[in-house]
């Protein structure tokens, strides 16, 4: 009986939740982009406080981006990751690097929270949603670092066990067997990620979706024409 209800909970958390979160992520982000385009902004507060900003925001962003890329790589190219890890030294390097980026993110996050609490102007432009995402990041980084320390070689077992599970979700043929046996801290990390994705489009995190990309290729000057002339000119 107990086993069955645990299995039921796992099904809710690792099958239903990810789909719900994906739907929320896609649907709300897109809807918000078209319905409330104006609200897509990085909402930078550097203008209000320019010193602590650097030491908080830069480590956080570099840390979190590299961690994200790491997770993405294990998901997209698990074989390459496993092949890389087959040499112990390379495995150590990867694990150490991941841990360092985790710590970097953690330091950045703490500085961000301190800055948002201590500077009255920055505090003013901090919304409840901001506190929620900061807390979520806190949980993710804690569970992530804990996993890195106490359940080592994550880069390998992620690629070997979590990736198949994630792919099973994407191919609409969910198979949670590799997940159920995971330590609960790892489970927490995965569930936290789903909740973050679900909450993502309701927060300032949407700025991630509009990071500039055409900039690198476009010409320096931009001219816009209206009306008939625009049509004439496009010939």
């Amino acid at each position: 009986m107990a086993i069955e209800s645990a299995f039921f909970a796992d099904q809710i958390l690792f099958i239903v939740l990810p789909y719900l979160s994906l739907i929320s992520f896609l649907f709300v982000s897109i809807r918000r982009y078209f319905r409330q385009t104006f609200t897509y902004s990085s909402l930078s507060s550097q203008f209000l406080e320019n010193q602590q900003h650097f030491w908080a925001v830069v480590p956080f962003h570099y840390g979190i981006i590299l961690l994200f890329v790491g997770h993405l790589a294990a998901f997209l190219v698990p074989r390459t990751v496993l092949a890389w890890n087959s040499v112990p030294l390379r495995l150590y390097i990867l694990e150490a690097a991941a841990f360092v980026f985790g710590v970097l993110t953690f330091v950045g996050l703490v500085s961000i929270v301190v800055r948002r609490f201590s500077d009255p102007k920055v505090k003013l432009v901090t919304s409840p949603a901001d506190w929620v995402i900061l807390a979520m990041f806190g949980v993710q980084i804690f569970t992530g670092l804990y996993t890195a320390v106490f359940h080592g070689w994550g880069s390998s077992w992620f690629a070997a066990s979590v990736t198949p599970y994630l792919w099973s979700l994407f191919t609409l043929n969910p198979d949670i067997t590799p997940i159920v046996a995971m330590p609960w801290m790892v489970k927490l990390h995965i569930i936290g990620a789903y909740i973050m994705f679900a909450f993502f489009p309701f927060t300032r995190l949407v700025h991630v979706l509009v990071v500039p990309n055409p900039y690198l290729w476009r010409k320096p000057q931009v001219v816009r024409w209206y009306g008939i002339k625009r049509l004439l000119r496009s010939r």
Binding site: Y40, S44, F47, P212, V222, V223, R224
Partner: peptide, 20 residues
């Protein structure tokens, strides 16, 4: 962008992301 017709320089409020 610069308006083609009269050269007025404007910021598209919908596309601005606050990178400054």
């Amino acid at each position: 962008y610069k308006r083609g017709e009269d050269g007025i320089v404007l910021i598209d409020q919908k596309r601005c992301r606050g990178w400054r």
